[in-house]
Write a protein that binds this DNA or RNA. Sequence first.
DNA 1: GGGGTTGGCTAACTGGGCTAGCCTATTGGC
DNA 2: GCCAATAGGCTAGCCCAGTTAGCCAACCCC
Lengths: 190, 190
Amino acid sequence: MPRAGLSHDVVVREAADVADATGWDQLSLAAVAARFGVRLPSLYKHISGLDGLRRDIAVQATRELGEVLSAAAVGRAGGDALRAVADAYRGFGHAYPGRYAATVRAPAPDDDEHRAVTDAVLRVVLAVLAGYGLSGDDAVDATRALRAGLHGFVTLEAGGGFGLPRDVDRSFRRLVDGLDATMTAWVSAG
Amino acid sequence: MPRAGLSHDVVVREAADVADATGWDQLSLAAVAARFGVRLPSLYKHISGLDGLRRDIAVQATRELGEVLSAAAVGRAGGDALRAVADAYRGFGHAYPGRYAATVRAPAPDDDEHRAVTDAVLRVVLAVLAGYGLSGDDAVDATRALRAGLHGFVTLEAGGGFGLPRDVDRSFRRLVDGLDATMTAWVSAG
DNA sequence: GGGGTTGGCTAACTGGGCTAGCCTATTGGC
DNA sequence: GCCAATAGGCTAGCCCAGTTAGCCAACCCC
């Protein structure tokens, strides 16, 4: 019985790849086990069931998203930073649809590790908004508007919701420009 | 063996209620059959499996959404219409989370009935945008931005993604105001 | 090389979806 | 009113995914 060399991180990473390839909803332990050429119950030595695996993927994917956004934001400010972060966000959703879907999952109230990585993403966004001069309630509203616009666009695009031939990149650019203008306006409106 | 009085429409409606109560992802034929006090295979006389049922719920829910949005838009124009439609959209998502999730499902390419109801929703949105003087590519971009913003907000809200205490109604109002301003600006920018 | 730990495995159960085929309630024609 | 056809329930039985329990071999360290 040769060992397959599994570990928690290896299993989670492979499972994330499965989710990217087949869809977050279609993720199954059977598919992951098959990837490793291993029987399904063997995975239980490394993860706690399908739901535990989903949570682990969410944590890993959210960490990766935070790194990607942070890298995009560094050295930029204002609309420049906003556009870079927005593009990075959408790019992540395109490149890793399964991981992206995982990042939407809200952390359980007592899951500190998960909370930490979602907070890290939030901090990047807040830093971008600070570049507009937004803070407090304005920043909260702006964060929600920004996440709503980006998340909505990425999920609708991934779900095939944009049937029309009109160039999708261009629509996205105009959406982000609109968000930029809105936030700029909020600043001057005080 | 008394008859339970099932029919296609009755089953789909009850299944939509199950989806609202337990979540679109948790929808199961077992739960629907239990609601009717009927054995699971009996449902197959009225629907074609779980996936067929999901598609049927999507069609029905999208039709309902179209009616709700259309009713909200009637007799209004411009920002007034936009706000009314946006509130109706979010209200539908709150009141019927399972049905709402079903409306996101894109129609199969050859599913004319499904396409017809999604087109009806699109027509309402386009009518609102026409009130801004938007048409052609501008209208397509605006539709996408609008759907992205509304859909993103509703799903994040439903998913518990808005953890902060800041009033969510207020954030939504500001998002819609921002969309209104953006579309107004697009018109003048031609 | 012997013992503990780790990481595979098989066996077995649950529960959901699906198909086949039975049997009865209802309905429509005469 | 009867008889046949249809339609709408049912049971039985399959498959597949997830889960748990418990076995046993591989590896690691002394």
